[in-house]
Nucleic acid binder design. Structure first.
Lengths: 354, 354
DNA sequence: GCTTGGCACTCGACCACAGGGAGTGCTAAA
DNA sequence: TTTAGCACTCCCTGTGGTCGAGTGCCAAGC
């Protein structure tokens, strides 16, 4: 029950045409477009077969055919030829995702670029690598009555800050002293190891350690523990989705936008696709979330220093220009990974299968 | 050509009804609703007068009346009785806008709360007070080859960070030393004064100062100067606007959402209303921006430590529940101001004219 | 002089209907 | 196996008719 070449060509042409125009494709148009020198009647026969296989359907009698989700699936799996993106856009991406910027900006730029270039919504999950990321610098700043601002800098230059409630008032000198202790002791140590070391310190040294150090340790611990769930999502260009008539229903849009602000489901989806290497595509229902019913999500994990730390991608209607989107997502993931890595130059452009 | 009491009552009832229902109000309904014991015919006469004055209009013959922008203006200026918000919501606001959180969170919470409680889009301009805000703490962290991360903490506990390109490599000791110098010398000094002092130092001490200090000064200066234009906007709950049928046109929505991401025009509008004290209302065209044609913007400046530092507000369709929105915006501005002030407890709830 | 009932009128919303067009499925011939 | 032909289906659009809500105006009433 597999497709012969002719049926493949016709399916491919149909989907390409439908992606471009957004309207059901009739047999006549298809016959002309496919370049196969077939009559429309023959095409109709093939279409009937494709419909039996569940790859295309017609919204109503006499309305031409549109691809089903399974049709899209076959298309992206076997028919589609990924289009390399043009140099202009590549340069633009490279420029925005240069290692010079700080991580937060890089994430935002990546999301923005994805949305701009694809004309869809761009999503980037913030990198998750506390465990393997090295500690670089900590700082305690007195705010007012017992409130202490803890500033934590990780190896990649990301700055996290958080206010904690101390158990007593500390003098600036005490705070400087404890910060120095941490910076001297733990600089370069991985975050996971720092946490484990702190746990040890606090239980073994309970009496013989100066009280201030104890406090510092517990403060650092508190600050670190709150960094456990910083999984966040940067979404850009949502309004691009308003241009697609198939999502034009305001209620659908509303649900979609709410999902963007809720973030929870999207995070789970991205998390899921973090485990597999390479570009992953969820078409319609495949994502498992109702809100994304008429949408496709194209994702790719990105890595920093050789380790996968997050996922990025785009969301758009199932009718999206996969050929281009796939390579854009792929390249963006690699550029972002490269920019986030400490030794710039890695993750450049050695092409790899998707 | 001013309104007599009866006309006022009718206009008020009409607008209230229209705000609640969203549909043109007919003379019959109005006569019943207003509690004036008038016949519909009389109401029709009054309506004709109001239409002559440009306060109401009908979308077409035989469709009841809806308020014009001028009608809304009269309504909010003279007819409307501000509704104090219920205790439940007040508590919710107070809880979210407590001084315990760090400034960035406070801003985001405020925006989110505004959108939640009003069911509209909430906007908060980030506080602008570098000049009068005191310097508290600075820190230099080496990243890699000449890239130095500068962390700047201001009096309110806000953490700004930025990567700068140094002119040569510095040792960690040098960086610690210079940070200490700054923290000792300038702690508590206002940002404006710090800048001025730095300018002086760098030109007078050019030879006799250690080179490292020179570098530190110029680094600090660079970091400070980039903090000049941090004017930013936090928008929440945009998707609430999709629930209003009068904004249901997808193209209009698209423009509106684009304005939210572009931020420029909105910032200008908020900036403009920063100068006047109290709640300010822009109805439709009054804002001067086409995108906001069918929208109203309700804003209020908020102050920290007795000084106005920013503006917040909501955006919704002209048909919004002004009575409640006004007091919500007012209170939120005061709560945020209080939470941002160093001496908590100020800016509580002494009522003041709007 | 204001208010009111009455009446003709207007206009959108809803429905039914017909014609045109695009496209299909099926059949029979090449 | 492909193709031409044909009947059929269904959407889209435009037309016309009815209904109801609401208006404007006028003449009568307080």
């Amino acid at each position: 029950m597999s497709l012969d070449t002719r049926a493949e060509i016709l399916l491919k042409t149909l989907i390409e045409r439908y992606i471009a125009e957004g309207q059901p494709v009739g047999s006549r148009t298809l016959a002309r477009q496919a370049g196969l020198d077939l009559s429309s009647a023959t095409v109709r026969n093939v279409m009937a077969d494709l419909e039996d296989m569940g790859l295309v359907c017609s919204p109503h009698t006499s309305a031409g055919r549109i691809p089903t989700e399974r049709g899209y699936r076959v298309f992206v799996d076997t028919l589609l030829k990924v289009k390399p993106l043009n140099l202009n856009e590549l340069h633009k991406l490279e420029q925005e995702l240069h290692a010079d910027h700080d991580p937060q900006h890089l994430i935002e730029n990546a999301s923005h670029m994805l949305s701009e270039v694809c004309k869809l919504a761009g999503i980037v999950m913030t990198p998750r690598r506390e465990e393997q990321l090295a500690f670089r610098h900590i700082d305690f700043v007195n705010l007012s009555n017992r409130r202490v601002l803890v500033i934590l800098v990780t190896q990649d230059g990301q700055v996290h800050n958080r206010i904690i409630q101390a158990d007593r008032e500390y003098s600036p000198a005490e705070l400087v002293q404890s910060a120095n202790y941490f910076n001297a002791t733990y600089s370069g140590v991985s975050m996971g190891d720092v946490k484990r070391a702190l746990l040890k310190e606090i239980q073994q040294a309970s009496d013989d350690m100066q009280r201030i150090m104890q406090a510092a340790v517990s403060m650092a611990r508190e600050a670190l523990s709150s960094e456990e769930q910083p999984d966040d999502l940067v979404v850009s260009g949502e309004s691009n989705l308003m241009d697609f008539p198939e999502l034009g229903d305001v209620r659908k849009l509303r649900k979609l936008f709410d999902a963007f602000t809720a973030k929870r489901d999207l995070l789970r989806l991205l998390d899921q696709s973090m485990r597999t290497g390479g570009v992953k595509i969820f078409i319609g229902q495949e994502s498992g979330y109702d809100v994304l019913a008429d949408c496709s999500v194209v994702t790719a994990p990105y890595s920093a220093d050789g380790r996968i730390v997050g996922t990025l991608g785009v969301i758009g209607p199932t009718r999206m220009a996969y050929e281009q989107v796939i390579s854009i997502v792929d390249i963006t993931a690699r550029l972002l990974g490269g920019a986030l890595s400490s030794n710039e130059g890695s993750g450049r452009l050695e092409s790899s299968g998707r």
